[in-house]
Amino acid sequence: MKEKKEKRHVSYAKWGLIFIAPFFIAYIIFSLAPQIITIYNAFFENYRSGLTIVGPNFVGLRNFVSLFTPDANGTIDILKYTGNTLLMWVEGAIPQIVIALLLAIFFTSYRLKIKGQGFFKAVIYMPNMIMASAFSMLFFTLFSNVGPVNQVIQAMGWADATIDFFSMTVTVRGMIALMNFLMWFGNTTILLMAGIMGIDQSMFEAANIDGANSLQTFFRVTLPLLKPILVYTIITAMIGGLQMFDVPQVLTNGFGVPNRTTMTLVMYLNNFLSGKNYGMSGAVSVILFIVTGILSLITFRSLRTQSEEA
């Protein structure tokens, strides 16, 4: 009797493991191992001077110490670049999330019933399909001293002299934020739409019957129920934002003009790679990793506690 029972019990557990194994193998080879090697490299002096390879020599925390040593003017570069990165991300992310949320609500509203949704969705997603570098080149040309934007401004008589957009921090950061916003709001819209459509339609109907207006429905029904997806969207956007590179790199030719105020963390890292300086770029990567981890945790915590309180 007992034996029979045991025979009937077939374990499918190993199949589950086999099915998910490819992901883990790929993850270990292509993500985890490089990550560990990067951290390891951060503790070594290892670069190339011309064709001469210097190192690797173990130097302990020296790379980190030099990253946090202030320059002659008392500026700690890596903090400045972290600040630049976060600021430019926030400038782009606020409109990105707000507009995407609005659009997602319009598109999913059973009252509005917008026609030609497929078309609009494709159009707002379109900018994401352009290569970031091509997009940057476009902006570079548009806003150059002899570009169309300056021509229009002068033709309209809004300014007498040429406006050099690349000499002002506000405009360069603004351009970068605008590009990131344009490239990503479509993607966010689609994610949030999926989130809203996942909410039980009867909730909206119930709110409607109870006499809630659109604003009340949004703040009392949609937003609380959307929170998990919203948290996910914000965290992924933030991780992407901290790794901001291609747009400012191409737009400012890697120099972060004006006066390195648009230099991001990954651009800084890339500067070290021109001399194949694995030690210093490894150290910057580790810091980027820690910053990303901390910020993600803070976002996750704060949004989760809020929703629990609600």
Binding site: D71, F255, N259, S274, G275, N277, M280
Partner: peptide, 11 residues
């Protein structure tokens, strides 16, 4: 900034 640029490429 020029000196920083050189330092980053040639420690």
């Amino acid at each position: 900034n020029f000196y920083k640029y050189i330092n980053e490429s040639y420690p």
